[in-house]
Simulated scan of single mutants.
Amino acid sequence: MKIHDLSIENSILNTFISEIRDHKIQQDRMRFRRNIERIGEILAYEMSKTLTFEQNNVTTPLGMSAMQLPTNQIVLCSILRAGVPLHNGLLHFFDTAENAFISAYRHHKHNPESFEIIVEYLACPDLENKTLILADPMLATGQSMVATFEALKPFGTPKDIHLISVIGAEEGVNYVSKHFDSNTHLWIATIDKDLNDKGYIVPGIGDAGDLAFGKKLQQ
């Protein structure tokens, strides 16, 4: 798997990452969601450099302009609910993309420190020979990303696959590396070293879904 860690070079991305980490700033849900969107826009821009382009002639009021434009048929799949702001940011750049959504969540059976990934709701177009983007803001253990891909397999074989995350843990990055082939690209804003005993990224940001939309009702 090809890993593109954008934190290797300093850029304005650092500002948005610092704000979603800051426990005071992140209490503003609107600002948190917008920062996730902006990170998604930056990741989309960097990813776009690897797409396939061909020349098109564009008619202006004063003549013709030859432009290199992308030809990929993109399907953008996000994991609900935390993935919605990231999905929106990516969609700002890939505005003609088809869209897929999947509900994948951690189910704790008996031990709060162990869980399995449950996939329920799924809506997806045909994936055959298309460019699939799997977006999940937090790449913690990596199990959600892999479970999502397994659930999408009946919809066809993509031509290429791009994974997009805001923050990952080294363990999660290593896990998905073992489950996706060498031609898969991972685009990530930054990678943290550790997971805690509940599978959350440290230092991370906390629960991205709760920060974006409020705490879930506990059942």
Rank of each mutant, 00 (worst) to 15 (best):
K2S: 14
H4V: 10
H4R: 14
D5V: 07
S7Q: 06
I8Q: 13
I8C: 07
I12T: 04
N14A: 06
N14T: 01
T15R: 13
S18G: 04
R21E: 01
D22Q: 03
K24F: 13
D28P: 00
D28Y: 05
M30A: 05
R31C: 07
R31H: 04
F32S: 14
R33I: 04
I36E: 07
G40P: 04
L43R: 02
L43G: 03
A44S: 01
A44V: 03
E46Q: 01
S48N: 07
K49R: 07
K49Q: 02
F53C: 14
E54K: 15
N57G: 01
V58C: 12
T59G: 09
P61K: 07
L62A: 08
L62S: 04
G63W: 08
G63H: 11
S65E: 11
A66Q: 07
M67H: 14
Q68S: 09
P70W: 12
P70C: 13
P70Y: 13
Q73C: 15
L76W: 12
C77H: 12
R81M: 12
A82V: 09
A82D: 05
G83V: 07
L86W: 01
N88M: 05
N88V: 00
N88A: 14
G89P: 02
G89C: 08
L90V: 14
L90D: 08
L91T: 04
L91M: 14
H92G: 07
F93M: 06
F94N: 01
T96W: 06
N99H: 08
N99G: 13
N99S: 12
A100T: 06
F101E: 02
F101V: 08
S103F: 09
S103L: 15
H107G: 03
H108A: 06
H108I: 05
H108L: 08
K109D: 11
P112N: 12
E113V: 02
F115Q: 06
E116A: 10
I118F: 03
Y121R: 06
Y121K: 15
P125Y: 09
P125W: 01
D126E: 07
D126T: 00
L134N: 11
D136V: 06
P137T: 01
M138K: 02
T141P: 01
T141M: 13
S144K: 00
M145C: 11
V146G: 07
A147H: 01
T148E: 00
T148N: 06
T148A: 15
F149N: 12
K153M: 14
F155Q: 10
G156C: 11
T157K: 14
P158E: 02
I161T: 12
G168H: 04
V173E: 08
V173S: 13
T184Y: 11
H185K: 15
H185I: 05
L186K: 06
W187Q: 13
W187M: 05
T190V: 11
T190R: 03
I191Q: 03
D192P: 00
L195M: 07
D197E: 13
I201A: 05
V202N: 09
V202Q: 08
G204C: 10
A212P: 00
G214L: 15
G214M: 13
K215D: 02
K215C: 02
K216M: 10
